[in-house]
């Protein structure tokens, strides 16, 4: 026994014990180090916890399923809407809906509230139109009238057929949108559209600098991009939230009706009165623009019968005094 001890100390019996003192020392030192690190981390965590315990603030948050919950304020992370999510839902559209717009020409007095609301929502300059009110006169002997003209969101859209890069598309709910992340600015669609609903950004769009870091929302088409197309989107972002389009709710004269053809109901943007679409179209002799082209528009017009206003004398058909550069 005495002999063995001596041997081990002198490092003669290497097989039985680790006789190498340096290796032994390193091993022990490593163990000690690990223990110290763990302990230190534990103490630090405890310290952090104690430190933050007093000033832990909570915030109330409404969850997706409408429950009000309280969570620590430092757990709150700002969610920036992901481009991919916006693109996917923008392409899919809203299920089992068929949006339809009815424009009552007898009520329009060119208040231009629809134009202004649209331009401010979509960040357009005063001379860039998604919707415009035209001064119309069919013939010499016939009276003039105002006609708001947005994109017709055709069910057989010639603009979409000609797009070479799948940038413009029609969704299941009938809306024709443009993805300016894909648009190459070839302007085939402008040439194809019989309603002149599309415009091209020749120059840097309005607020381009301010919106630089904004995530692109295909349903709002903001931020707008130089060298791409833009047009009326039926305010797809508002429809998702159950709200009427910007132009429809801005009109002070009850010109616009908007609704879902599947529900056979349209709601007036001014009076918020909901009426049956089929009855409204039938009773007023509704028509659509250029039906002979077979484009099948989703915008109906009610003829300017019993107009509610006199046509202003200073405005003549063909003249455009509607914006100041």
């Amino acid at each position: 026994m005495e002999e063995e001890k001596r041997k081990s100390l002198s490092g003669e019996n290497n097989e039985k014990t680790s006789g190498n003192p340096r290796r032994d020392f390193l091993k022990k030192f490593g163990l000690l180090g690990a223990a110290a690190a763990t302990g230190g981390a534990a103490i630090y965590t405890g310290y952090r916890y104690e430190h933050s315990k007093g000033k832990h603030e909570t915030v109330k948050v409404l969850t997706d399923d409408n429950r009000l919950v309280e969570i620590p304020a430092d757990q709150v992370k700002d969610v920036t809407s992901d481009l991919k999510v916006l693109q996917t839902r923008g392409r899919e559209g809203i299920k089992s809906r068929r949006w339809v717009m009815v424009i009552d020409l007898s009520k329009c007095r060119n208040a231009r509230q629809c134009v202004n609301a649209c331009q401010s929502a979509h960040q357009l300059r005063p001379y860039e139109y998604h919707i415009n009110t035209l001064i119309m006169k069919e013939d010499q002997g016939t009276p003039p009238y105002f006609m708001p003209k947005p994109c017709q969101h055709c069910d057989n859209p010639p603009c979409v057929s000609v797009c070479p890069v799948d940038a413009t598309f029609k969704r299941q709910d009938g809306i024709v949108l443009i993805d300016n992340e894909r648009c190459i600015g070839c302007r085939f669609c402008i040439a194809a559209c019989p309603y002149s609903a599309r415009i091209f950004h020749w120059e840097k769009p309005k607020n381009a600098e301010a919106n630089k870091d904004m995530t692109y929302d295909v349903e709002l088409n903001v931020p707008q991009k130089k060298g791409t197309i833009t047009k009326c989107l039926f305010s797809a972002d508002r429809l998702r939230e159950g709200e009427l389009p910007y132009c429809v709710s801005a009109c002070p004269n009850g010109v616009f009706y908007f609704g879902d053809e599947n529900e056979d109901a349209v709601t007036n943007g001014t009076t918020k009165e909901t009426v049956r679409l089929s009855t409204l179209l039938e009773d007023n002799g509704a028509y659509r623009l250029m039906p002979e082209l077979g484009t099948d528009p989703r915008v109906y017009y009610l003829p300017p019968r019993n107009r509610l206003f006199d046509f202003p004398e200073d405005q003549q058909p063909g003249e455009h005094k509607d914006f100041i550069l």
């Binding site: 159950g242 908007f258 529900e263 109901a265 709601t267 009165e273 909901t274 009426v275 049956r276």
Partner: peptide, 11 residues
């Protein structure tokens, strides 16, 4: 009596 529609009530 009104039926619920997407943007309002249809009487």
């Amino acid at each position: 009596v009104a039926a619920e529609r997407y943007f309002g009530q249809l009487q």
